[in-house]
Amino acid sequence: MDPEFFEAAAMPLFDQLYNFAHWLTGNRSDAEDLVQETYAKALKGFRSFQEGTNLRAWMYRILRNSFLTSRTGLGAHNVSPLDDEMDITALAAHSLTPEFLVLQQEGKQTVRDALACLPLNYREVILLCEIEEMQYKEIAEVLGVPIGTVMSRLARARKMLRELLTAKPTEKVSKWTVIKTPSH
């Protein structure tokens, strides 16, 4: 599309993209850098954007790929192997962050805390679904994977969150009461 229309088309997505960037990076300054980089890249590539396709998914994809290739993306968060057949216990044993294990022991965490512990490829899929409220089809576009993969990653992400939000898997029922619900 003609770059002349970029500002009008892309600025309405600014708040959403920033929110997602802040969730991914965990702080304002990195989120701003990421959003700025996203807009610069999108403007540059806007001619190749196909009119009539999903601009939001296209922009999110640029943002997400920028995050993956940035130092923040690779340095601060381990990306667990993309093998969706991998066993969840093996995943927990090998790829989850130290924070995950600490949280597992502490056993009382908010969703926000728990999210920060997920490996990136599970964190991003659940953020897009629950925070950005995207449909599976759009998430698949952003991540560049089939819908089936979105579904299986979401299921695993939720399973991990469940474990994080529960002190001991054997005491699930009683522990649900300790989930904090911060006031708005």
Binding site: M11, D15, Y18, V35, Y39, V111, T181
Partner: peptide
């Protein structure tokens, strides 16, 4: 779990200065 996401608090909002900066850039 889904309900937990409702309780994560308000969305992160960009500052007006930052928005202006990007607007100017593009």
């Amino acid at each position: 779990i889904k309900r937990g996401f409702r309780a994560v608090g308000p969305r992160f909002a960009p500052s007006p200065e930052f928005r202006r900066r990007v607007e100017q850039q593009i």
